[in-house]
Amino acid sequence: MRVIVCVTQILDPEIPPGEFRLNAERTAAAEGIGQLVMSIFDENAVEVALQLRERMIEREPVEVIALTVGPPSAADVLRRALSLRADRAILISSEGGPVLDGVVVASLLKAAVERLHPVDLVLCGRETGDWHGGQVGSFLAEALGWTCVTFVSRIEATDGGFLMRRQSDEGWEIVWAARPAVATITNEETNVPRLPKVRDTMLAARAPIPMWTIPELVSDVTGLWGANGRLQVRELVIPGTSKACEWIEGETVTEKAVHLVRALRERRIL
């Protein structure tokens, strides 16, 4: 069975708001204000793929392949996937191509998935940690004409399909999905990303990473350009957040609790 995990490189989402700045055009975050990391739900997706491989060990070999679309420097997230023991990783170079919107990325991923035929399962994050698009996985499933299940936290293989645990607004649903399928992954206690071993990180740092170019993947590059430009980023603004926090003090915890209740009553909340 062949499982593909689509991973993205983003600005570290945990940088404090105080360090966040925009670029000169005000169209994105400024470069260099933080580290570049693998998007958080893609880490969960890698974990789901690795666990599936581990559970299948007696039944069927599972090959886990990480894919990313981006500049050559995005190879870092593929090395991260390799250090976690993905079997292979391929960089789809976006150099010279159109601006990467959801449709462009999905078109390139589709071409790569077809080139890796036969593929049984593709995993994406539910959304990236920078632009929170929440669409590439669904677009990809549509482009491939495959089954799609979103907000999935665990996957089991069954005959002809997969059992997926899907998060709903009220709890969870167990959904059977026909093979081949795309799933978008959300976080749960069972898919918290593992940490790589030092030795695997060293091996991954030296591993050769094949690179596929856009012309290799799609014949109609102008068609790809044409898909773009449906949305223009006019401007990013940084919202004002700081409030003046009123500190509730007291000599003892009881005093603090009493003062808090009083403050809430004064505000007519209690």
């Binding site: 600005l11 989402p13 966040f20 975050a29 949305l231 980023v233 006019r234 401007e235």
Partner: peptide, 16 residues
């Protein structure tokens, strides 16, 4: 829409 985990708000225009 909020982007970068709410650290910024993006204003987008749908061209068609």
């Amino acid at each position: 829409k909020p982007v970068y985990g709410g650290k910024a708000h993006a204003m987008l225009v749908a061209s068609r």
